[in-house]
Design a protein around this nucleic acid. Sequence first.
DNA 1: CTCCTTACTGATAAATATTTTCAATAAGGA
DNA 2: TCCTTATTGAAAATATTTATCAGTAAGGAG
Lengths: 145, 145
Amino acid sequence: MDLQTKLNNAGLRMTRPRQVVLSILEEAPVPLSPQSIHQHSIEAGQEIGLVSVYRTLEVLMELALVRKVHGADGCHGYVIASPGHHHHLVCHECDRAIEFSGKEDLANLMARIQKETGYIVDGHMLQLYGLCPECQSKMKARVNE
Amino acid sequence: MDLQTKLNNAGLRMTRPRQVVLSILEEAPVPLSPQSIHQHSIEAGQEIGLVSVYRTLEVLMELALVRKVHGADGCHGYVIASPGHHHHLVCHECDRAIEFSGKEDLANLMARIQKETGYIVDGHMLQLYGLCPECQSKMKARVNE
DNA sequence: CTCCTTACTGATAAATATTTTCAATAAGGA
DNA sequence: TCCTTATTGAAAATATTTATCAGTAAGGAG
Ligand SMILES: [Mn+2]
Ligand SMILES: [Mn+2]
Ligand SMILES: [Zn+2]
Ligand SMILES: [Zn+2]
């Protein structure tokens, strides 16, 4: 299902800002902040009001088309999200983020915690951090200087 | 090791603001924002400048005495952290947060993702969401009205 | 295709949140 | 007790997010 239909199904309209924000996030290899998205829109000759960026992100979050990526210490920004449930793996050097899935691997853990705590566990957020292949190469190159 | 020594070891000093912020977080059953911590300090007759709250949180984060709790959609706030590595389980009704550990459970997953993606995976953040026992009771009570 | 209805946008202003500066204070080792 | 200097709090500067509102345009009805 495409953006147009997804929006219309929710009683929303397909507009230029929504297209632009989505396509900027689709291009970006790293999580972007609202300010950063706004900046990109200007550089692409498709300026969008900063306020609309905020509003659009809210909509896209509700449609689960984008997600927020967090760091242990702070929030990194928004990334495009493919359909379904999944997590993100973020490079702590360059912030490049990619998706991965692993729902099954958490099922045991979640069941155990539910039993131990008395909480009913019904959701989770998992993020992995590491060094992406590109940054690994750069690091090797630096050592060989 | 107590706060005093921990601070001194890092070349830092033990001060009232640091004691107060820490003890407020120790009391609190839910994650607190800087503003909220500031408010608590006033109500406790131990007012601390808001700016100092920010500075103190930064220090306590570095000492790993507090952590940030995130929601899928936004950041919840700061919570006290016991020593060592662990995660948080947050009630989406009342925000009550408790710790749990489960490093082993993730080892397989992390190894798999590392192989699949080429990233060197060296860190992770996991949070579970659910309904705490108290909120479960309230919910039942409401149904029986 | 044209006409409405009303969701949406962008400009502006307002409200919040965070960071910077700097003189005065106090922690804690000598 | 006396220094040195980390730390605090008040104030101001920035940055971020939300609220308003009149004008615009998406898209269904006819
Ligand atoms: Mn966050
Ligand atoms: Mn862990
Ligand atoms: Zn990288
Ligand atoms: Zn609860």
